Computed example of a mutant assay.
Amino acid sequence: MAVFEGEQASERHAATKVTLIGMALDAALGLFKCVVGWVFHSQALVVDGIHSFSDVASDLLVLAIMRAARKGPDTDHPYGHQRFETLGTMVLGSFLLALGGALAWDNLQPLFSAPRELPLPGWPVLVIAALSVLSKEWIYRYTRRVGEAIRSDLIVANAWHSRTDAFSSIIVLIAVAGAMTGVSWLDAVAAVAVAVIIGHVGWRLTWSSVKELVDTALDTDTSQEIERIARGTEGVRNVHDLRSRRMGGDVLIDLHLMVSPVISVSEGHEIGVNAIQRIREAFPEIRDITFHIDAENDAGNEPHASDLPSRREVIQTLQSTWQDLLAPEALQTLRLHYLGRHISVEVFIHNPAAHANRFDTRALRERAAHLPWLGDVRVWTPPH
């Protein structure tokens, strides 16, 4: 637990640092863009500046969400708090979607209204747009590198938000250069294009978060590869009922492993542990794997109570059935195999001298033939 909390603290520190750097850069760019765009007659740069200020708002959201999302598991949240990160990503995406729609609507109206002479943008607009492209591309690369290192979808989403600012600044740069040649409506078209980019990123982030919140499974190729790795583990006969879901940057897996019905519980568990280890080596992002060991193929069937007798009931029934064939102590070490609608029984004779000429496998089967639940009967004796 201490190691986990240490990792969480380190990840929170890295996320906070890169977010604060990005927030300072966004605030400075937003201010310059809005002022220069207003003074030098570029509505596209003003919209781009509003986009930068939206980055500041998203940075504040990231700081708040990361503090909650990187807490360790507790009683109320035994799987951790990563879904807070997913929720934050959805809120950020919804905000961008609404912002893009509002800006697009506001800048479409002048294009369809009565034409009027618009002042041409000034050259400082080009300088600020170029500076924005370079700085936002840098912060995008830095933020994405940190987000991938700490496996945070929220930080990666924030990085892409920064890159949309770089894309929008490129559009502003090209459109303003065209508007300065006399085609004034290019600036308004660029403003609409920037708004569409903002809305598109918002939709992508919102939709991916919704899919995670409703426990959408991993893609088919990844699921098949996980099954292939598990099936290739020594002792695993088959794999079925693989279920997966994401929680923040982590993946949670449930699967059933079919093994031989005659091995011990501890051997079956060890086979399962080996399969899980191999899956984790191939997919480090998988944080939690719950496996179920099956003695037979029950794919697609829900576990249900059986009407077969319990171990205590089996021993009581066989004691009365075989009382003159086996010593009572032989029935205390029975190995039972519940397979289908029958119970196969293995009898271990540790002291053959105490059963001299009293037991015979065929006699045991014949005496118990009336028991509808009894399957195969095997008797094991120590070698002579």
Rank of each mutant, 00 (worst) to 15 (best):
L97N: 05
A98C: 12
G100A: 08
G100P: 06
G101A: 12
G101N: 06
G101F: 13
A102M: 11
L103K: 00
A104P: 05
A104Q: 02
A104I: 04
W105I: 14
D106M: 13
N107V: 01
N107F: 08
L108N: 02
L108D: 01
L108P: 01
Q109T: 14
P110M: 06
P110Q: 01
L111F: 05
L111K: 06
F112T: 13
F112G: 08
S113Q: 14
S113K: 07
A114M: 14
A114G: 10
P115D: 13
P115S: 13
R116A: 15
L118G: 01
P119H: 12
P119T: 11
P124A: 08
L126W: 12
V127G: 06
V127K: 08
I128D: 03
I128V: 15
I128M: 01
A130S: 11
S132W: 05
S132N: 14
S132M: 06
L134K: 00
L134G: 14
K136F: 03
K136A: 11
W138P: 00
I139R: 02
Y140I: 04
R141Y: 03
R141W: 01
Y142N: 03
Y142M: 06
T143W: 03
T143G: 03
R144C: 02
R145W: 12
V146F: 03
V146N: 03
G147Q: 07
E148H: 15
E148F: 12
E148L: 15
A149V: 00
A149N: 04
R151L: 10
R151I: 05
R151P: 10
R151M: 07
L154G: 02
L154R: 02
V156H: 05
V156K: 13
A157K: 10
N158A: 05
N158D: 05
W160D: 14
W160G: 12
H161Q: 11
